[in-house]
Simulated scan of single mutants.
Amino acid sequence: MPGRVFFVVPRVSYACGGVNITIQFADILRRSGVDAYLIVERADYRYEFVSYDVPTVYCPIGPAALRLGKRDRMLKTLNWRPPGKARNPRVQPGPDDIIVIPEVQYPAQRARFAGCPWILMNQSTTIMAETCARTGYGDLAADPTHIGTIATSEAALRTVRALADPDAVRVPLALDGDRYGHVERKRKLISYMPRRRADQVHIIVDLLRAHPALEGYEFQPIHGMTGAEVDACLRESLLFLSFSHQEGFGLPPAEAMAMGCLTIGYAGVGGQEFFTKATGFPIPEDDIAEYVTRVVEVVTAYERDPAPLDALRRGASQAILGRYTRAATQEALLNFWNRLEFRTNPA
């Protein structure tokens, strides 16, 4: 059996859904008796946007290694936080340990932890595809230290199975627990995540602000908030505008549905597994006119008779919370873990 398990966490300055899920998986393993940790590159860095009990340790990695594993345009969104008060213990993983590497930092971190058994954790479609285009189809199969791959969504699983590892396993993320739950009473607040499709965000939001049917509605971007602040905003929001783009899953619209928001917008590939006409109002890709028209129609209908739309958002919350449970995540993750053929001394 392996020694310690280290989940690689990048140093980011904003709430990141992928990091939240990484912490969730590490927490499940640790509570199940696995000696799991988060590993970062600095002694003074701690991801601060959700609360968690998984210990953070550090091993100097360096921005150069990080850059090798990310698309150039994504680097522009990685902002380093200033030094904090955290003092993480320093570690040096060895051949008896396992490294869990996110797709955004593969293959750089594989090279950094050469000699350690490692698991690929894929939460993306486009990033994984671009990485495979650089490294080649047989890259994982030719690596004796690679011991398994997990994917967190249907789209991420299809991508990694087709391009990198046909034996990859789906481990769904969880959206239940204390954070999420349907909220019946809402106010005239429209929230949205502006990190994707910035050009369309400005156009669509400006058009909606100016529309007379939305008089009295407030608009609130949720970028740059802590997890608690996002939750508070979604609890109050009647509508959520989704600008998902080339997502592996797309957490913001799923979280909005779980909180009882009427969700309108783009599914962004990965969101197609949950964002349907039964749970919201999906808009065809890049159709700005349809997007604005649908928001106006939904608001107008709600002002006239809220009961049918209240029923829709209640049903969407039940669908999300009933499907993406911690119990399902734990079962899938532990099944994967127990089936692994651990290689504690790879050649």
Results as ranks from 00 to 15, higher is better:
Q92C: 14
V295E: 05
L75S: 07
P10S: 09
L251T: 10
V5C: 05
H182T: 12
Y266E: 11
D165I: 11
A332P: 05
M1P: 14
I21C: 15
L238C: 01
D139T: 15
Q220G: 11
S153R: 11
Q318N: 13
T329F: 04
A198F: 07
L75C: 10
A36M: 07
T22L: 08
P284I: 02
K85Y: 11
A111V: 14
E236G: 09
D206Q: 10
I101E: 00
R87G: 03
K277A: 13
G224I: 04
I21A: 15
M1Q: 10
S191D: 14
A258E: 05
S124L: 15
R46Q: 12
Q105S: 13
D165T: 14
A327N: 07
E285P: 01
V12N: 15
G115A: 01
M128D: 04
A210E: 11
P107I: 05
T263M: 06
F275S: 02
K70C: 10
Y324N: 08
D96P: 07
M259E: 11
G69C: 02
R314N: 12
T276A: 04
R31Y: 00
L333A: 05
I288C: 02
L75P: 12
Y192P: 00
R304P: 01
Y106E: 15
F336K: 02
A289D: 13
Y106C: 13
E247I: 06
I39R: 01
D310M: 11
P253L: 05
